[in-house]
């Protein structure tokens, strides 16, 4: 009897260790990135680090604002494009398409998430950016010539191109979470609305979307978290310039892209620490967003069951 207890206890101990090890890993990452960036935060000051607009490693000046703004702009643009599309696809797959069509189509949408980021970057750099430069940007300028965010020479690479590419990469996340949320709504909702004579459009707009609101918001926030941290594809099409972009056509930078480009070339401990500071800001933002989004989705899933 004692032997049984000890071997089982040991086994359970191994499992708990593996689980808690993962927990410790998360804490370890936060701690390591935090201590690495301490120097830069102390030297520059946390708020000046966040809102400073000059990034001059030689002079020891580190302002993250251009990269931070670039990250926010590209991600916002990606969401503006990806949310309506993702929701529409989710509605089609869940509410409109017959199952025989829906499952292969959703597999294809998921495949979009399996393509490695560097391949999106390669495609973005050599196919999407020239297309944006030659067709999209001149067309936008011709149609809406006076808008400040369509200013400047059409370069192809820049905030607009990065946003479009990010939208493609975020779509599968938005779609699959939105589907999960819609699937969790009981059929009685749909049946009740249809029985009252509602069209399918009205079922979706008046019944399903209001009921799934918090979950759909969660889908958006999860997509945002993905967009903020995306590195390679953005690095290849953002244009890599440490300036505050004055238009969507302008080249810019993102937090992740700065780290990717400059980390292995950092020539001073303070420089390295500043780059770790960017990583800390990035990690903090995505942690908060992801935690919030999970709560929203959980709430949405649990609410009607």
């Amino acid at each position: 009897m004692t032997r049984r207890v000890t071997s089982d206890t040991a086994f359970q101990g191994v499992l708990v260790f593996a689980g808690v090890g993962g927990l410790a890993l998360l804490g370890g990452i936060a701690w390591v990135v935090g201590t690495m960036s301490e120097d830069a935060f102390r030297h520059v000051g946390f708020w000046r680090f966040l809102v400073g607009t000059t990034w001059d490693p030689v002079a020891g000046e580190f302002g993250a604002w251009p990269a931070l703004l670039g990250t926010l702009l590209t991600s916002a643009l990606a969401l503006v494009l990806a949310l309506p599309l993702g929701f529409a696809v989710a509605v089609f797959l869940n509410e409109v398409a017959p199952a025989r069509l829906a499952s292969p189509l959703s597999a294809l949408v998921d495949l979009l998430a399996a393509v490695p980021s560097v391949i999106y970057g390669l495609w973005g750099l050599f196919v999407l950016a020239p297309a944006v430069r030659d067709h999209v940007q001149p067309a936008l300028q011709a149609v809406l010539p006076d808008l400040p965010f369509f200013r400047g020479p059409p370069l192809g690479v820049g905030v607009l191109c990065a946003g479009v590419l990010l939208a493609v990469m975020v779509l599968p996340v938005v779609t699959s979470v939105a589907r999960e949320v819609l699937r969790a709504l009981p059929d009685s909702f749909r049946e009740a609305a249809l029985a009252l004579g509602a069209t399918r459009f009205e079922v979706v707009r008046r019944v399903l979307f209001p009921a799934a609101r918090s979950g759909l918001l969660g889908a958006g926030v999860l997509g945002l978290g993905r967009a903020l941290g995306e590195t390679m594809a953005v690095t290849m099409v953002i244009g890599n310039r440490h300036d505050v972009p004055d238009s969507l056509f302008a080249p810019g930078y993102t937090l992740a892209a700065v780290i990717a480009n400059e980390f292995s070339e950092a020539f001073s401990p303070l420089y390295l620490s500043a780059l770790a500071g960017l990583a800390a800001v990035l990690m903090g933002t995505t942690l908060i967003l992801n935690a919030g989004a999970r709560l929203l989705v959980l709430h949405a899933r649990g609410r009607w069951s």
């Binding site: 993962g22 998360l26 390591v32 941290g229 590195t231 780290i259 770790a276 990035l282 942690l287 992801n290």
Partner: peptide, 25 residues
Amino acid sequence: AWAVRASADVLTGVPSIVVGVFAYA
């Protein structure tokens, strides 16, 4: 178990470049 599950989910959301910084350090 709740904490481990949450940390696994959160870890999935940590940008991979940040994990690179961690491994570097």
